[in-house]
Amino acid sequence: MNTIASLLIGEIGYVSEESLESIPLKLLEMGCLPGAEVELVQIAPLKDPLYICVNGSHLAIRKETAAMIQILKS
């Protein structure tokens, strides 16, 4: 199962419809919606947090959160 945490730097995925319930409301509000394109921009030096670009928003989220969000790879 692919999640945002399993993306490589520069790789793009799409947030899967199934993960709706597991996306924290706050992230949803910031644009991390099912179907949205998500790119892993950068990983912090100590492997956590992750710097992603989703739906045009540039966000840093922790790995544990990223691992909850399922994606489909293109």
Partner: peptide
């Protein structure tokens, strides 16, 4: 603990 930060 929940963490999300925008990178402006």
């Amino acid at each position: 603990s929940f963490f999300v930060v925008e990178m402006p």
